[in-house]
Nucleic acid binder design. Sequence first.
RNA 1: GGAAGGGUGGCUGAGUGGACUAAGGCGCCUGACUCGAAAUCAGGAGAUGUCGCAAGGCAUCCGGGAGUUCGAAUCUCCCCUCUUCCGCCA
Length: 433
Amino acid sequence: MLDVKVIREKTEWVCARLAARNAGDEVNIQEIIALDDARRKNLSEVEVLRANRNKVSKEIGVLMGKKQFDEANLRKQETTEIGQKISDLDKKLQEIESQREAMLLKTPNTPHDTVPYGKTSEDNPVVKTYGEKKIFSFKPLNHVELCEKLNLIDFQRATKISGRGFILYTNLGARLERGLINFLLDTHTREHGYTEIQPPLMVTQECMYGVGQFPKFRDQAYTIQEGLDAETLGKQYLLPTAEAALVNLHRDEILKEEELPKRYCAYTPCFRAEAGAAGLGTRGLIRVHQFDKVELVKIVEPEKGYEELEKLLLNAEKILQLLGLHYRVISLCTGDLGFTSAKTYDIEVWAPGQDQYLEVSSCSNCEDYQARRMGLRFKKADGTLCFPHLLNGSGTALARLYVALLETYQQPDGSILIPEVLRPYVGTDQIKI
RNA sequence: GGAAGGGUGGCUGAGUGGACUAAGGCGCCUGACUCGAAAUCAGGAGAUGUCGCAAGGCAUCCGGGAGUUCGAAUCUCCCCUCUUCCGCCA
C-alpha cells in the first residue's frame, strides 16, 4: 500500500499518478487524508488520557504500599472515570483506523514517472522486438488442431473430468510440458542465479492481501474449504500465481542488507477463476482456469529496483531467445498497469497459427507497495529500517509458450520440430503422428 | 483428530499483580589501554505511532485477539504456532 506520509506530503502528485492509471471512484485520497487527520486527533487525545491514568495508577501503588487505603480508593475512582473515557475514545479510534486501512488497501500503486501515459492496452508502446514473424510455405495450423492431430492434449476428456478451462496433456504432450518446466527452472537457477523454491499451492488470506490480490480480486481466487465463513483466518486459497507465495516468504521479517538481493524462482500450477471472463471462451490453451508457470521474484534495495527490473526482463527474454521464438516487449501504459505495479513490461510471443502475439510474461516492479502491505523490511548498514522493492516476472507462463512453440515449429508434414535446447528434456528431436 | 507442555529483545534466559523503566549472559556499537589486535575496563544500543523548529516528551509492543483490575509479561477465555506422546495415513 501507499505510504500515508507520501500521500499527505505529495498529495497532488499522488492524485495525478492515480488518475493517470484510471483508478476507480472507490479511491478517494482526500478521504484517506481526512481519516488520517481524525486518527491523529483521536490518538493524541487517547494518549494524553493514558499517560494520566498511568501516572495516577502508579501513585495508587505507592499509597497502597504506605497502607493509605482511603486515599488510594479516592484516586481509584479518578482512574475509573479516565478508563471509561479511554475505552470510548479507543472504540471510535479503532473504527477510524479500520476505515483508513480499508481505503489504503483498495488504493493501487502509483505508476513510476517513466511509465508511458495511456488509457488502454491500445496505448502500450512496443519497446523492443526479437526475431521476426516466420514465413510458412503452407498455411500453419493452430495449436488446437496440432494437439489433436498429434495426440498431445485431450480436450474432451479434460472437460469431462474437470469442466471447461482445464488441460489434460497426454503422452508426448505431457512430456513436452514437463520438459519445458525443467528447461525453464534449470535456465533460471543455473544461468541466472535464482534460488529454486517449491512452495505450497495454497496460501493464507494474509498472503493474498500482502501480494495485492485481496481485497480487489477476491472473486478471482479459488478456495476449496467449504462451510467456513469468509472471514475465518487461516482459510487457504489456491495460488493465482507463485508470486503470491514467493513474495510472502519474508513477510513480517527484517532482512539484513547483505542478504539482498534475494532471487527466487518457482514452478507452480496457477489457478484463476476468471470470473467475468466467460464467453471469452477461446478454445485451447490461451485462457484456462489452471496453467503452469515458472515465476521469478526479487527482493532488492530501492535504489536498485529499476536496474533489477531490466535484468529480470532480460532473464525472461532469454528463454524465448533460447527457444528461437519471435517476440516483442511492450511497456504497459499508465491506464493498463496492474494494481500493485509501478512499472510493467509484458513479453508477447508470436503464435503463427493464431496470427497474433500472446502474453507469456509480465515483469513488474511493485516498488515498496507490497513490502509495506506485508511488513517486509531490511536493515541498512547505518541501522535504519527500510522497505525493499519487490519485483516479479513470469519466466514464463507455460500454456501460451506451448502454443507458440507448436505453431512456430510445425512442419509441412504436420510434425513438430523440437528446438535444440529442448531435446535433452523431451528426449526426441521431433513429434510426429 | 486426541492429550500434555511451551512461545519473553539479534540470540540465550529470568520474571506468577505495583521500581518491569524486562535482570543476567552471549553477540553488537563507541571509547580507554595497545604500534595494531585479543583480553580487560567504561559507556551505548530496539520497533511502531504521535507531538515538537529542535532538544526531547508521551503512548503502544513479552505469539495474536478479547476480558478481569485503579494497574497485566504475570490472572481468565478464545485463536495461532512449536515440541513430545497417541491415533490415522501416502
